[in-house]
Design a protein around this nucleic acid. Structure first.
Ligand SMILES: [Zn+2]
Ligand SMILES: [Zn+2]
Ligand SMILES: [Zn+2]
Ligand SMILES: [Zn+2]
Lengths: 182, 182
DNA sequence: AGAATTGTGTTATGTTATAACATATCGCTG
DNA sequence: CAGCGATATGTTATAACATAACACAATTCT
C-alpha cells in the first residue's frame, strides 16, 4: 500500500481531492529563476523547431511552472477559466499535448498529472521522484536505468519506444520536517 | 510520439477504442497452464495470509489471466455483467484493489489497465515490457533498475515507497511477423 | 487576395474511478 | 444454533479524466 500526493477536503458533505500543494515553494531556491529559465528555454526550443508558442500554450506552461508539483489538467482548466472567461477541456488537453510533443512537459502516468521538464532541449524519457507528502516532483536521469532496460529489452528481442519510470515516496525535506504521522 | 496498444473500430459513425487483443494466444505456450498455475498460486497466497478468495475475486482473476494482455476495468465489468446479471463499477474496482493489495495483479499506470502477476508470492514492484502492437505484457525484474533507483533516491535523501517502470515498444513476435507498417 | 495550414471555440460524449450507504455473508463465541 | 462483529457485496449517484467532431479564426505561403 502506498499513498498518492492528494489531499482530501470537504465542502458541506461532499469531499474533494486535490493534489497536495508543495509545502514551501520559495524557501530553498529562487523559483522565479526556474520559471524564467523554463519559459525562455521553451521559446528557444520551439523557435528552433519552427513551432509556435501561442498565448494559451504560454499560459499553460507558466501555470505548470508555478511550483515543482504536478498539475492536473482540470486545475489548468480552472486557471484558464479565470484568465480567459471560458475554457473547455480540449483547450487544455491540446495545449498539454503540444507541450509534451515538444518535450516541454512530461505526463506523470501514476498521477494523471503533468510536470514541466527542466531539460527540454534534450530528447529523453523522464524519471521522477514524487513526494507523497508535499507533492514535489524531481526529474532525474540515471543512465544505469536506461542501460538496464535496454539490456532487458534486447534479451527479449523487444524494441523500446517509450519508458515510464516513476518513484513514489517521501522527499528529504518532508522526512526532516515531518512527524512521521502525516 | 509513441503509440499505445489500442485499436480503433466503428459502430455506425461513432468510433471506439479497445485494447488490442493478443495476436495469437495459444501459439507459443500452453496457456491453460499459466491460468491454472496463477489461480492455484493465488489460492495459496491468500490462504497463507488468511485472506478470502471469493467468487467475484476468482472470476476477475480468471478473466485477467485469459491471456497476457492488460485488461481494462470496464471490460471486466462487462464480463461480470455477462456472468452475473448486474455488476457495477465498485464491484470491479474493489476486486481489483484486493487483488493488487495481495500482489496478485499489477496496475499498469500508462494504460489504466491491469495484468496478472506471475510472482505473487514475492513482494515486489513490477517492471513491464508492453507491446504496442499485440498488447502482450511481460513482467520482468532487473535488479540493476532497483539498485539504480535506490542510489538515485539515496543521494537525494528520498525514501522510496513504490515504483512504476513501464516500457512501451514492440515485442519480438510482432517485429518478426509484422510488416513494419502496423 | 486566395489557398493551405495551424490553432481555437464549442458541443457532446466517452472513459475511468470513487463516495456513501444499504444489505448480505462469513466466522466466531457463548 | 443464536447473536455479534467483521468482511464482502449491492446500489445509487457522481466525480475525475479525456477525446471526437465540426465550426470558425488566425497565420503563413504563394
Ligand atoms: Zn523552482
Ligand atoms: Zn524531462
Ligand atoms: Zn500464458
Ligand atoms: Zn509482479
Amino acid at each position: 500500500m502506498y499513498y498518492k500526493p492528494f489531499v482530501q477536503f470537504f465542502i458541506g458533505k461532499r469531499s474533494y481531492m486535490e493534489l497536495k500543494p508543495e509545502k514551501s515553494v520559495p524557501a530553498r531556491h529562487d523559483h522565479q529563476n526556474c520559471i524564467d529559465t523554463a519559459l525562455q528555454e521553451a521559446e528557444r526550443v520551439l523557435e528552433d523547431k519552427g513551432a509556435r508558442m501561442t498565448g494559451i500554450r504560454r499560459l499553460v506552461l507558466q501555470y505548470i511552472w508555478r511550483n515543482h508539483c504536478a498539475v492536473k489538467a482540470y486545475d489548468i482548466l480552472g486557471f484558464l477559466g479565470d484568465r480567459k472567461g471560458s475554457a473547455k477541456p480540449p483547450t487544455v488537453y491540446r495545449a498539454l499535448q503540444f507541450l509534451q510533443d515538444h518535450g516541454l512537459v512530461h505526463r506523470l502516468e501514476s498521477l494523471n498529472a503533468y510536470i514541466g521538464c527542466p531539460y527540454p532541449a534534450e530528447n529523453h524519457n523522464g524519471q521522477f521522484l514524487i513526494c507523497n507528502d508535499c507533492g514535489t516532483v524531481k526529474e532525474f536521469t540515471t543512465p544505469e536505468i536506461l542501460r538496464a532496460v535496454d539490456i532487458a529489452a534486447d534479451t527479449q528481442g523487444f524494441e523500446v519506444s517509450h519508458q515510464t519510470h516513476e518513484v513514489l515516496g517521501r522527499c528529504q525535506d518532508c522526512r526532516e520536517q515531518g512527524n512521521g504521522l502525516d
